[in-house]
Amino acid sequence: MTQPLDYLKETPSQTAGPYVHIGLAPGAAGFDIYDRELGHDIAGPNAAGERIRVEGIVMDGTGSPVKDVLLEAWQANAAGVHAHPESPGTVEDGFRGWGRVITDFATGEWGFDTVKPGPVAGRNGTMQAPHIGLWLVARGINLGLHTRLYFDDEVEANAADPVLNLIEWEGRRATLIARRGARDGQPVYRFDITLQGGEETVFFDI
């Protein structure tokens, strides 16, 4: 008999359910318990770069907004550095690059304020276009969904991005491109996510 390989197996996922807010955003569930909830400030006050807002809605397979999503964001700073020891470089004091928001119970809209990330090193000496990693959980989502948000004003960088170019169906690449607009002089990028159907957002196995 061969000897066993002593690897462990990853704990299986279970849905975050409808009450995810209690654990991860208790204020939204309707009570205050922690001095400070986590994930409310992605960039901090010292971050360089353009201040932007990102907004959207999450749609299900019937075209209805999903109103109990929890969404997390992970991004580099304007210089393309992540707040993590394995990212070469340093970030501004207070820059975390991580945020957590929920969809509004009434409208399904979500949004967060941050700085626009810079290009990030890819594999084999390539560069990745500026992007924000997004991770979604909700009731009815059995394993958190990973996607990426790119910016429509980064035409050249997007055209060269190794991840976008990996998507065989060119038409589907557009589901990852946020559209730039403005409100009260502030840039606002719109990024709607479709969980299922013809306009389905590209999700990744990372």
Binding site: G140, F204, D205
Partner: peptide
């Protein structure tokens, strides 16, 4: 889960 599950396969990175 029936209406909240992607139909297309995930893109592996």
């Amino acid at each position: 889960s029936v209406t909240r599950s992607p139909n297309y396969p995930l893109i592996s990175l």
